[in-house]
Design a protein around this nucleic acid. Structure first.
Lengths: 191, 191, 191, 191
DNA sequence: AATGAATGAGGTTTCATTCAT
DNA sequence: TATGAATGAAACCTCATTCAT
């Protein structure tokens, strides 16, 4: 079924092309006309691949989350905790653009959906727990809350970058966080 | 001029009543009808007090920022850095609701305005630098970047609360951050 | 509550103004723009009174059916069956325009709704049984099927008028039907 | 020219497959995609056989009318009027499905075409007079208006069946009409 | 000051039709 | 011939804003 493969591939390409626009302006501030113009296709073609703007956005969230999952999975990890933290630092810096945009759409996603709605949908439920799982596995932390907390802090940095005036680089901030975490772990769980 | 005072007071009341709605759903997802219904007045009355939805929102951002400024100004501070950090912790926890909503509208604000637009507007310029100033003064930190960075991390926690499932309380997270900061300062600037 | 009265009145006026257009062209062939132009108001105003084109149409069906009910209720009846039939003839001829258009929207209505959908909705259920009730009461017939059958024949004549070339008038056709019915009743139930 | 014959045959098969859908939902409520799905071919293929949806529909009307013509032509007739009427009854009952659907598309056809348009098109003009001719010949009635009128009443019954709840069968209704006609003719032209 | 009906530009979506393959 | 992705005009509908009352 080569056609389905191609079509599926094309669907993903569309999603990634929309990623920028949604991340920068927010879901509600991007019109379908803008999207289709950006994609270089007609609005009709967009609706051939996605049943609605809402669905396109949700599939974007899903796809992007899956890609993030892959990033975590394939990244080098290191062994002592400090090295793992540095591996995380590297992963974030190397994929700065992805992570920043992902943080943006995630905030948007939550504003457009009731919590109940997310909790009822198995796909979103799964995605929603992703960061916690990914981070805790990546850092090999048994304390899931701590893992999630670290991701929360990272998220703060990512969102700060949306309001970027360039004066305080992502790299610098991530590095500072890294140092903070290392200091914390040295103090509380010196292994 | 009691009338003007009243009117000004009423304007502020309107702003605070809008705060919830904007924070929860986001600027673009709240209609003027929803707002006026929430406010218990007609859309016409709303337009009597504010020239546009956009202006209402901007004045909300301004007002809320000013209130935050007051919060920082009037809060007890303590003297060694660790005590100052704990004072910050208390300030945040006591005003949890305010800070969470404020973080939400701030993200929205950035998505609705070009960076250039903000930089050209003296009011927003001033607001934009607020947190850096407030935090650095509050913690008595000379390193402005560090102060801003701390605020960035706090922001991450605040935004996380928007997606709250209640399983990891604001109080806990802020406390964890506090410990992390103290560990960091102990290691790098032990005074 | 004079405002509600007026508004309700206006809603009905809108419905009757739409009656012609829907009857002549059919639901799907009339655009909301055409409707609002015909009504002399903006599309927005239309949506102020009716939540959707579909709802407008359904309320039209309901309203028109209720009016028909009134027509039957207030019409003179006569006493022997033959006189009652002639009263029906008169009622139809005097309200030719209403009945023809009503037949048209009724056909449309059925094409746009699943039978199940109609049967689940008490309002439509009620309307759906209207003709049978009205006719049987009007003609004082105990045989409900016969009453409904007569209405079915009348409906045939009404719909024929939609395709009118004017060569065979409604009045003539209704009169012919009347004679047929009288002949039938004379033969089968000579009272 | 066997190929053309096949192609012509295929064209007709397509038309009959569309018959159901158009009759049930109405021209405007059936999309070309639905049609092609129902037909089991692509939209492109449909457009190979018919230049437009409109043309397909018109050819359907034409084809179905021609078939009706054949039905009338080949049906047994009987000799006295009462027997002829019973022959008509039989013809209708044996082809119930065809006649019901045909009535449906005929109503649709009129809503989609201006009277003038029909009168200018010789094909439709011819079709339009069909029932009158067919019926008057079939019943051997010299009064053309009366023949057309009878068809009008039958049409009422056919359309009633579209809104069928199954409680009053086509067969019963046609039979009742037959009795009514016989009673009428007995009274007014007892031959 | 206050109301809320009215406006209409513009948003999302549909669908008859075309066309590269 | 056949496919079905692509087109884009036009449909339905929303909503910030205005204005008569």
């Amino acid at each position: 079924m080569p056609k389905i493969v191609d079509s599926e591939q094309y669907r993903k390409e569309i999603l990634y092309k929309c990623f920028d626009l949604f991340a920068e302006k927010g879901y509600a501030n991007v019109t379908t006309r803008q999207l289709s113009k950006e994609l270089g296709i007609s609005t009709g073609a967009m609706y051939h691949y996605f049943p609605s703007k809402q669905a396109l956005f949700e599939q974007l969230v899903e796809e992007v989350s899956m890609q993030e999952f892959q990033l975590f999975k394939t990244a080098a990890r290191g062994h002592p905790l400090s090295e793992r933290i540095q591996a995380l630092e590297m992963l974030l810096i190397e994929n700065e653009d992805h992570f920043i945009k992902q943080a943006a759409i995630w905030v948007d996603f939550y504003q457009h959906h009731e919590i109940a709605e997310i909790n009822e949908n198995p796909v979103f439920q799964k995605i929603d727990r992703r960061s916690q799982q990914e981070i805790s596995e990546f850092l090999n932390l048994t304390d899931l809350k701590l893992a999630r907390f670290i991701w929360t802090l990272i998220n703060g940095i990512l969102i700060e970058q949306l309001e970027d005036d360039g004066s305080f680089s992502f790299r610098e901030q991530i590095h500072l966080l890294t140092q903070m975490l290392i200091a914390y772990f040295e103090k509380y769980s010196p292994d």
